[in-house]
Design a protein around this nucleic acid. Structure first.
Lengths: 273, 273
DNA sequence: ATGTGTGAAGGGGTTCACAGCG
DNA sequence: CGCTGTGAACCCCTTCACACAT
């Protein structure tokens, strides 16, 4: 079992946010495994964390139902996701926590540490450099780079801040494949280009800009304002809906609208918009 | 135009990360507009930012092609997305930058400011409090809360740090609907529960935990480690593929494999995994 | 008897390609 | 003629429901 799957030999190297990249013509799935769906890839880290939490709590075995609950998904999705990796469970029993944890870590590629460079040591870069979750989750910050002359040599989280001039050397020395961009928006593209030229092929972008990168380079974007705006959109909808319900109630009479499950948010705070 | 669409009268109040929420039985699309797809909602803020950039650059009109390029999507997707909002373009011409910008801002709900509370003023909370992009993008930080007694009263970004005890008062006073959780993982659920109890119905979670919330509350998660792990997965694939190519080349002879578009990453850094 | 692994059905989202308006 | 707006095809993902292994 677990061998005969590889439905489509398609590869799709960049699944993240490189939408306009070339379609990758030939390149059949020669090496590696069976093309895990991008949506599944995005959830594997969540499962990994849930498994680590279970292991820390002393749990040695769990069902798909339990793990799914811990990861915040439904069990069918979890089982389908895991099925892309292989048959790591035991029917009628469940999954061995430690074994599954290792398998997922191996699949993601975090059984060893990835060296990472952080560029832009402002408030955010500072926070990232100090984030202790890195080490335990497969990453090691090997250098901090910043443009400001004044800050060169300053120690942050046990590392000295170095200038952009050192970028190429750092990437080469440590074999850095992943770069974190935490610069202001107007410097981001420039920094990105330089990282890519130095050999970095994955970038995590915190700057509020769209980064253009050549095919073969993955970019993922983390944008605070965008996340808040998405929440604001839904929040506005809720407020409108609550208002509509009131209007409906008044106009169409007491029609017993079957609202349930949508607790009209405390009217006292729908003051905005 | 723009009126006769509402294909499905379904509402789907929480599109973000509340996967296990009840299916919302009745509740026809009485109030508000025509149910914009979640994927589109997630891109509207990107368009908004691109339009703002264009406006700042003095551009008054743009085609779907230009705007799409600025937003990092393809033009078909952009046009489809905008079509859910209405017909705001002119055929044969394009879009009026300022007009479209306002329409999207209105749709998202950021024509007025949303009051926001940040809970957990560690390294990250500090950075978030100092982030200036808030004000300009529809949000206003009204309070900073932290558990540490020692830090009470300390000024961060012009605001005093207050204790958790003030949470309910702050939410009520400012009509806060959106809360940002930047606490350590083990405090996050507790803080979340308290925010929700106080009336907050949208939460942006930076803590590396899955938050459980009642139906009607939206949670969005920003998780650094997960983003990096997703990049690591693809990075590993690239390395495996590059390796496979080499093996193929050696075993199957010089078959002219048509690699292009996938620049084999500098071999010097494929040292991991 | 229990819970995994998986075909099959169903729903969204993306892309295509062109009708239609300016 | 140019570019928007949109039906339709296509593809991916989620969900269902159950066969099957233990």
């Amino acid at each position: 079992m677990s061998a005969g799957r590889r439905t489509a030999p398609q590869v799709r190297a960049s699944g993240a946010s490189t939408p306009e990249s070339a379609p990758l013509p030939g390149t059949g799935g020669a090496a590696g495994g069976a093309a895990i769906p991008e949506a599944t890839v995005a959830r594997l880290p969540v499962y990994l964390r849930a498994l680590t939490a279970l292991a820390d709590a002393g749990t040695t075995t769990c069902s798909s139902e339990e793990l799914a609950a811990a990861a915040g998904v439904n069990s069918a999705k979890l089982r389908k996701d895991l099925s892309y990796l292989g048959s790591y469970g035991t029917r009628g029993v469940g999954y061995d926590v430690e074994y599954l944890r290792y398998q997922i870590a191996r699949e993601i590629g975090v059984t060893q540490d990835w060296p990472v460079v952080i560029v832009g040591i402002g408030n955010l870069g500072h926070a990232l450099a100090n984030y202790s979750g890195f080490r335990s989750r497969g990453f090691r910050v090997v250098a901090l780079l910043d443009a400001a002359e004044a800050r060169q040599g300053e120690q942050v989280a046990g590392l000295p801040i170095r200038g952009f001039d050192d970028l190429e050397a750092v990437v080469a020395e440590h074999g850095v494949a992943i770069g974190v961009v935490a610069t202001p928006a107007d410097a981001a593209q420039q920094v990105c280009d330089r990282l890519v030229a130095a050999g970095v092929t994955s970038i995590l972008n915190f700057a509020p800009t769209v980064l253009a990168v050549p095919a073969g380079v993955d970019v993922r974007k983390v944008d605070l304002s965008i996340e808040l705006q998405i929440l604001a959109f839904h929040e506005q909808r809720k407020a409108q809906q609550a208002l509509g319900q009131i209007v409906d109630g008044a106009a169409a009479g007491p029609a017993e609208v079957e609202v349930e499950a949508v607790p009209v948010p405390d009217a006292g705070k729908a003051v905005i918009a």
